[in-house]
Computed example of a mutant assay.
Amino acid sequence: MRRPRAPRPAHEPVEPAGAEEAGRAPERAAESAHPGPAAPEGAGPARYPAVVPGADPAAASTGVATRADPGSLGRLREYAASSVVSTGLTDRLAERRRAARSLRLRRLTGAVVVVLVIAAIVWGVLYSPLLALRPADITVVGAEDASGAVSADQVRGVLAAHEGESLVRLDVDRLGGEVADGLVRVRSASVTRSWPHGLAVSLELRNPVAAQETDGGYAVLDSEAVVLETVAEAPAGLTRLATDGAGEGAPRLTAAQVATMTAIMGSLDATTRQQVSRATVSTAGQVVLSLANGASAVWGDGSQNALKARVLATLLTTPASVYDVSAPHNPTTR
């Protein structure tokens, strides 16, 4: 026999999706139309629904959360990133400006310091007493060759006008010229600096080689016919200059004749020069040297003086009354 089937349950009506939500919509609309009582005092600030960029403004006004558009989050991130980049760039530019100002200030300060240091060094070297000349610190070399004719104090006296000047600013060549011009016995002077306050002066002196009679006495001459001094009496040991046939009616020596004879006397070595007592010159310019032993030396004109002097020094070793060196390559004695 067949078993009887159980009766099927009656199907309950299935509520369509969203019906419940749709049924609540009028209630929410009524609540929004008739707001509830205000929040009591002290209950805190009212909360407002957040508005998401890209979301439906109507949903934001009703307070119903909705999902934002897919591009809204990207725009939000771009906005935030652009704000950060803008703020960071501004800060970096400001920092760079501050660094540039600081660098300029440091450079300016460094330049001022360098200028002040250089100015201090220049003043100390050129104008301060640090390197100032002191006459007491001037040393003189070569004055002893003049047999007291030139003293170190005379040289210091000439250079005393530069006392207190920095050695760096002194022109040593000009100082040498001042010494030579200020002291007639000095032919030339070489000046060097002796740090920190002195000078070293090396002298080349003029040596007297002849004497010329003048109205005021006897002029003492060197090899360049420079008058070193004038004395009342003929100096001993110096050759006297005269014209040939000297007498009361003899012509006076010309400057050219004096220059020729002093150059001849200057070419002789000291030993030979001491043997010459007198030198005469003719109107034709021929010079004859009279020796202290009575002999004579025919010199001729003023050419080849150095060679003639060497030849005469050699001939004087042979006794003779006349030594002729006017032709130095063919000298004769008799």
Rank of each mutant, 00 (worst) to 15 (best):
M1W: 12
P4W: 14
R5M: 06
P7V: 13
P7F: 12
P7W: 13
H11G: 13
H11P: 14
A19R: 09
R24I: 06
P26H: 09
R28W: 14
R28Y: 12
H34C: 10
G36C: 01
A39G: 02
R47Q: 12
R47P: 03
P53Y: 10
G54N: 05
A58G: 10
A59R: 12
T62K: 07
G63D: 09
A65D: 14
T66Y: 08
R67I: 07
G74N: 12
E78I: 02
Y79S: 15
V84M: 15
S86W: 13
T87I: 10
T90R: 15
R92K: 09
R98M: 00
R98A: 00
S102W: 10
R104L: 13
V114K: 11
W123A: 15
V125P: 10
Y127E: 15
P129V: 09
R134Q: 14
P135G: 05
P135D: 05
D137A: 14
G142H: 12
G142V: 12
A143C: 05
G157D: 13
A161N: 02
E163L: 12
E163R: 15
E165C: 07
V172K: 02
V172P: 05
E178C: 01
E178F: 04
A180G: 15
A180Y: 14
D181P: 01
L183W: 07
P196Y: 03
L205S: 14
A210M: 06
D215W: 02
G217K: 04
S223L: 07
A225W: 00
E229N: 00
V231M: 02
A236G: 11
T239Y: 03
L241W: 05
L241N: 03
T243C: 01
T243R: 07
A246E: 02
A246K: 00
G247N: 08
Q257H: 02
Q257W: 02
A259E: 11
M261P: 00
T272F: 13
Q275F: 12
T280M: 02
A284M: 08
L289T: 00
L289P: 04
S290Y: 11
L291V: 03
A292W: 11
A295R: 06
Q304I: 00
L307M: 06
L312E: 01
A313M: 07
T314N: 06
V325H: 00
S326R: 02
